[in-house]
């Protein structure tokens, strides 16, 4: 069985990528199971997706704990949910990442001695984010060495069939290119037989705790403070003090309480928790809030 796990952020097309791959396997005659995993969150939040493909009926279900291939579509996840992204790596696991980092930097950060295949954004079209589904699915299809180009293209067309024709054509073109570019890696990801057994779980007898502990309640803001949801942002609002009238409407409307008032009465954005919804920009009566691309802003601050 092939066990393949995708990691990305909501809105990047990770679920679609897993479906393109699932359909491609299916068109090759495999039994397939593909499933996304996400919470009640929104665009930008970490999501994963699983694809299993086998020659016989698949009984496994849900999360893949021991993946043959991990796809990291968004390298920032390595800083945010590293343990989730790299969970269950074993001797045959291959890691595929889209990253601007150098190979040595990547090896240092991932630090597991596994095969890492990288595509640098520089070799992709400038607007490659629009095609992440097709790029990652296509590379993955090539890595299996089993999926033929026809099945891949059929998979792309099937999963994007509700999109406009131009967009489908752009996707199939880039899928073909990536499939070709990755030729040297054909067959690098291999199937494993049997059921993966990991470690014996240490079951405990859960003791009775005082009800004040055993209540689902948040008594302080610490949970939210520790969860740095600012990493979900793709665009950030920036306040221009010279235009700001200190009306604080932005503070009122911010759904994440990420805007506070400083000593001079100006609003200040907590970028560790601002998710980049830009409602503040919409409601600002004096046009004092602008929108900046997150990646550009982040590199400026670094």
């Amino acid at each position: 069985m092939f066990r393949i796990r995708f990691h990305g952020r909501g809105g990047e097309g990770i679920k679609t990528a897993s479906r393109i791959l699932g359909s491609s396997f299916f068109f090759e005659g495999f039994q397939v199971q593909d499933a996304p995993k996400y919470g009640a969150e929104r665009r930008g939040a970490p999501v994963s997706a699983y694809v299993r493909a086998d020659h016989k009926q698949i009984y496994e279900r849900g999360e893949i704990h021991k993946p043959d291939l991990i796809i990291i579509a968004d390298e920032t996840l390595l800083h945010v949910t590293r343990n989730t992204v790299l969970e269950g790596i074993y001797e045959n696991t291959v890691i595929f990442i889209i990253s601007a980092m150098s190979n040595s930097e990547l090896e240092e950060i991932i630090n597991c001695g596994k095969t890492i295949i990288k595509i640098a954004p520089a070799v992709l079209p400038e607007n490659y984010h629009r095609f992440l589904s097709s790029i990652t699915a296509s590379a993955t299809a090539r890595f299996t060495g089993i999926i033929q180009i026809d099945s891949l293209i059929r998979g792309v067309e099937e999963e994007l069939k509700s999109a406009k024709n131009d967009l489908i054509l752009e996707n199939t073109a880039i899928a073909k290119k990536i499939f070709n570019d990755m030729t040297s890696y054909s067959g690098i990801v291999t199937e494993t037989d049997g059921t993966p057994v990991i470690t014996e779980p240490q079951l405990i007898d859960l003791p009775l705790h005082n009800s004040s502990i055993a209540t689902p309640a948040i008594r302080t803001g610490s949970t939210s403070v520790k969860n740095q949801t600012g990493s979900w942002r793709t665009s950030r609002p920036v306040i221009l003090q010279e235009k700001c009238s200190r009306c604080m409407l932005c503070n009122v409307y911010c759904p994440d309480s990420a805007i506070t008032k400083n000593e001079e009465g100006f609003p200040v954005i907590d970028y560790n928790h601002c998710k980049g919804c830009l409602i503040c920009r919409e409601v600002c009566p004096s046009g004092a809030i602008t929108q900046e691309d997150e990646k550009t802003s982040r590199s400026k601050t670094v």
Binding site: P196, V197, I198, E200, P201, L203, I204, D205, L206
Partner: peptide, 30 residues
Amino acid sequence: TIDEFIVIAGEMREYTKKGIQPRTRLLFTG
């Protein structure tokens, strides 16, 4: 997980040999 099914099977084997009902277990790790 598959590992938990294996633990369950092991526990059932043990108790069946002794001929006693095992206590209720929650699948929950430390």
